[in-house]
Design a protein around this nucleic acid. Sequence first.
DNA 1: TCTGTAACTTAGTATCATAGGG
DNA 2: CCCTATGATACTAAGTTACAGA
Length: 568
Amino acid sequence: HLVCWPWPLSELFSFFAYRWEEERYTDGVKWKFLEHKGPVFAPPYEPLSSKVKFYYDGKLLKLSPKAEEVATFFAKMLDHEYTTKGIFRKNFFKDWRKEMTSEEKALITDLNKCNFTEMAEYFKAQSEARKQMTKEEKQKIKEENERTLQEYGFCIMDNHKERIANFRIEPPGLFRGRGDHPKMGMLKRRIQPEDIIINCSKDSKVPEPPAGHKWKEVRHDNKVTWLVSWTENIQGSIKYIMLNPSSRIKGEKDWQKYETARSLKKCVDRIRNQYKEDWKSKEMKIRQRAVALYFIDKLALRAGNEKEEGETADTVGCCSLRVEHIKLHPELDGQEFVVEFDFLGKDSIRYYNKVPVEKRVFKNLQLFMENKQPEDDLFDRLTTLILNKHLQELMDGLTAKVFRTYNASITLQQQLKELTNPEENVPAKILSYNRANRAVAILCNHQRAPPKTFEKSMQNLQAKIDAKKDQLTDARRELKSAKADAKVRKDEKSKKIEEQLMKLEVQATDREENKQIALGTSKLNYLDPRISVAWCKKWGVPIEKIYNKTQREKFAWAIDMADKDYEF
DNA sequence: TCTGTAACTTAGTATCATAGGG
DNA sequence: CCCTATGATACTAAGTTACAGA
């Protein structure tokens, strides 16, 4: 029979014990049996009704189906700011023209003369209509989605029925990278079965391609975890369909990641002493490596691989920092040796920080910057490969990103110890948890755009608080004037209101502090879940207050494993 | 040993679903 | 009961690291 996550503790342990002891999977074998139904393709394009008009240079023009499809991609984005950006428009227009007939190509030579407004309005009306659907219509769609999920959303890997993460092929559309992306606006082409590589086991039932089509390839590679792959046309990179985080294969990997971070804990002092020594090395290469590692450790910076210029947005990590990204202040606001960082990191999120450093680090940075232009590499003798090779020698499995995991998790554990007040009630404890989580998010620079409705929602909450305060005043007045026999009842009532007020105030504080901070990323990717589970058990906070259903599924292994005394 | 590519994790945001207040 | 604010989920881009092959 098929066993789904979350499985019982005994089974989890016996499974892993079996794996390690019997070495069931050696040499990178990831599974023995894999069967699935293949991907779900994007729905085919439905040509617009002729009532929806497109105008070129003020004149009505019926586009060929291919050109029309691409035009609708642009029309759907019309009220986004980026359709006004030069690069977006240039890339879009170039790719759109490739889809045109020769007649269209000859006629349509200027994007500024294209009028997409009727198309845009048509799609807006469509989405309005979708919102206005009756309950029954919505229910029907929901059931349809559920059927698709049941058919395509699961696979069998070894003895488990597992949820697939992304079983739908990405639909065609216009590419919008993050930040200043040189390829924004390019056409992301439609993926056909002929583009798809299927991966499954030899003894499984191979998924059928859609009628009249063939797969590009069917392979049986059990050294990888993906079920389906295709090559995307913007960067030429490979996209994969893989399993959900709740799956055995992902959970096991996640666990392993935190175990590696815990082994760093055991030797981090030695490594820190070593890189401090290396600041004095006579070899420039070693000094650069040591200063970079110090940044990675202290500031939780990413490794910073080299990137191909012009292919992606101009972002950097530690090893790819340029001279222009830091400023040295021998003295700033009463502090000595301050380094001011200002650069765009992953997803073009700005990293801005002023950090006092050891004198020796400061002097080294001055040295690295000597006779360089702003656009030159700060660490010109260093790459992530060199750094990771060095780290591998210091500890088995150590790479630059382990420091982020380690520092995030250890920070959570410390902060929880510091901030949790045993006397406080559950909502206050949860505020402490969120504050500990927040300290990590700040360390890892996990930012978000303040929600559009932020101000309004704060006002609403404040109004609720004010109303509750009035209610409390009334209740207390009633209590005072109440007769002896009603006193107890009235007192309970004010107590209840007090508690509600306190809850609201905690909520307001939490929300305010969280305005531009995203907690989700660290919670999902950096914090050893066993720390949180242990904290919940220790303080009697229900785990549901910390992890929602999906998160509990992802961290099922940790929920089973950790007791209240777990130490990262 | 170097380089390019494959594999897999990490990331923010758009969209969807639903709980809870009016 | 309906509506909307909010949390959950879907989506897919953008990183890191492992690894194959020249």
